[in-house]
């Protein structure tokens, strides 16, 4: 098997230099990979990406927040039940201007992971996130979300407190939030629990992050009836950064240091900063109505359906019915 690190080094030398504009509405700069062709043969396998995305020493939300932003003040609690340590958020400054930041937080050690519940939020975590989204909207601050979770916590207490409702509400609030949103997948984007932070005007991903509807182990257990097929499942699910770019799930990839994000937190954070700052700048110039219309369209077009041409067209409604709204 190819040495994954060697491959990564190769990608790093390519940097973010992308010849073409991969995803339409992003202006590709040096800071982003918007065309997977730029990765060439350096593209790592899905399973290698899964391992890197889960690397214990990969920079997690707080490490990134401290390096990308200044004067971060964490804010706690959902005002309903308790403070969920698996989601962190608050107000920080980017280039001297305040922004609201919300991210899922894994631990860098077993102890911290137990305290942070391995980055698996409970409903109160999502409700804290919703509270901070609303705060951003009310005071017209841009919102940056950082995604890094194996998934929402699937335990009985989470079910009792309405895990599904909390995630649904979080997604819904983001679809209509009247302020610019940039989301970055840092490590693991685990299903609905990740999407609850992922409805944004621009969705970026670190080069070796993953984003999936189900964990490869979960998919293998269900589809092949053995968790041992996880590697195959990872390949089939197309969950690695370059796949996500090709499927237009993300708008661009943020390059990582040569041997992966865990080897150099400072540089990873610098790359993230270089990637999100111009996006926030660009989004801030848009009128709210335009912003919301484009966010709607961004998600509206995701999906592949086959529709035979020449479908019968519904008869036009008379103009007076339109006026009366009938």
């Amino acid at each position: 098997m190819r040495d994954p690190l060697a491959a990564l080094r190769e990608i790093a030398t390519l940097g973010g230099r992308s010849p073409s504009e991969g995803n339409g509405h992003l202006v590709a700069g040096d800071e982003l990979i918007t065309d997977t062709a730029a990765l060439g043969s350096a593209r790592i396998s899905a399973w290698e990406a899964v391992k890197l995305a889960r690397e214990l020493h990969r920079p997690h939300s707080i490490e990134i927040i401290e390096r990308v932003f200044t004067r971060f003040q964490e804010m706690h609690g959902d005002r309903l039940f308790r403070d969920d340590p698996a989601i962190v958020g608050g107000i920080a400054e980017l280039a001297g201007r305040p922004v609201v930041v919300v991210g899922q937080q894994k631990g860098a050690s077993t102890e911290e992971n137990i305290q942070r519940n391995f980055g698996m939020p409970h409903p109160e975590g999502y409700r804290k996130a919703i509270r901070l989204y609303r705060l951003a909207e009310r005071f017209q601050l841009p919102l940056v979300t950082l995604i890094d979770t194996p998934g929402a916590f699937p335990g009985p207490e989470a079910e009792e407190r309405g895990q599904a409702e909390a995630i649904a509400k979080s997604i819904e609030v983001m679809t209509g939030l009247r302020t610019p949103i940039v989301a970055v997948v840092l490590g693991e984007g685990g299903s609905g629990g990740a999407l609850a932070l992922g409805v944004a005007d621009v969705v970026l991903s670190l080069q070796n992050a993953i984003y999936s509807v189900i964990s490869p182990e979960g998919a293998a257990a269900i589809l092949w009836r053995t968790a041992g097929e996880a590697e195959r499942a990872a390949r089939s699910l197309r969950l690695a950064g370059p796949d996500l770019l090709e499927l237009r799930i993300v708008d661009g990839l943020i390059p990582e240091p040569p041997a992966g994000a865990h080897t150099d937190h400072d540089r990873t954070a610098a790359n993230i900063k270089a990637a999100i700052a111009p996006q926030l700048e660009r989004l801030a110039r848009k009128a709210t109505a335009e912003l919301l219309a484009e966010r709607y369209e961004r998600f509206r077009r995701i999906g592949v359906v086959v529709e035979p041409a020449g479908e019968p067209v519904a008869p036009r409604r008379p103009w007076w019915k339109k006026v009366l709204g009938r």
Partner: peptide, 26 residues
């Protein structure tokens, strides 16, 4: 739930449907 065979595209349908449903509420 979401259909595994369509991967992340299936996941994103959650956001797509909710975008439309949330407009009904508004």
């Amino acid at each position: 739930g979401a259909r595994m065979q369509e991967g992340t595209l299936a996941l994103m349908q959650m956001a797509k449907i909710l975008s439309a449903v949330s407009r009904l509420g508004d």
